[in-house]
Design a protein around this nucleic acid. Sequence first.
DNA 1: CTACGATATGTTTTACAAAACATAACGCAG
DNA 2: CTGCGTTATGTTTTGTAAAACATATCGTAG
Lengths: 136, 136
Amino acid sequence: MPRRHQQPGDNALAQAPAGQGLQVKGRIWLERDGQTYLSWGRVVLLERIGQAGSVAAAARSMGMSYRHAWGLVREMNQAAGLPLVERRAGGQGGGGAMLTEAGQGEVTNFWALAEQFQAWLSARRPRQPGDALPRG
Amino acid sequence: MPRRHQQPGDNALAQAPAGQGLQVKGRIWLERDGQTYLSWGRVVLLERIGQAGSVAAAARSMGMSYRHAWGLVREMNQAAGLPLVERRAGGQGGGGAMLTEAGQGEVTNFWALAEQFQAWLSARRPRQPGDALPRG
DNA sequence: CTACGATATGTTTTACAAAACATAACGCAG
DNA sequence: CTGCGTTATGTTTTGTAAAACATATCGTAG
């Protein structure tokens, strides 16, 4: 698979109303002690883990390698300081994973933040290059 | 030089007040017809070209290869539809470059947007994982 | 006409993240 | 105790953007 991770338009955080070709884009994420904790892709992953009941299925559903998803889950759990995803290996169905209540909370919280950001972006209208500057 | 392009903290757009280790970060940029037009690094480059009087000196001053800076200037001029930077090869000092009025305007405009974004980010305070969700 | 320092590009190398590949271990069902 | 699909990792490959390298050209000064 060619490298296709976050292309424009994928990102719910990146859209803006487009003032004819020119648009303000942006992205937000949460960091914990300098390392990325939650971002758009990570939260989608969490969400799908919650839906699918396994990291493997969630990863498959979004064209992500299990190896990568696994690493992200690990990082997120660690950075959160408490598990957002609980996993078990073996057992019926081979095992699985589920979002904890804290994990669900983080998802909800992040989407709320994202929505606010989206609203903020939507309120901006980029000035065309060459247009007069606002007086100062 | 090792690859070090935009690390956390470099980016004037990325800071937030830090709710003890956990912080909201973000980045904004302008796109024109889907391609990046202005971003933090690009605007710094423009600014320094204005100060230094040449693309080469500006690039040097920020540890960027001339080759790369040249490409960025080219892209920005093209995407703007009018020159933000005017260059001349040869002549006294070997040549040089300067910001056009439009270029200066874009810089000013971008920093204004960045400042608004910074203010927006600063107003967010991330909820700690595990904290109760706002009721809903 | 030569030297200088810049612009202008083409070409090659490198660094790194993501992807791909490869196993091991787990634990219940049958 | 075997099979299954998952979690759990280590290892290798690959795709890509940036960096590095290499020239050619430009135009004024001397």
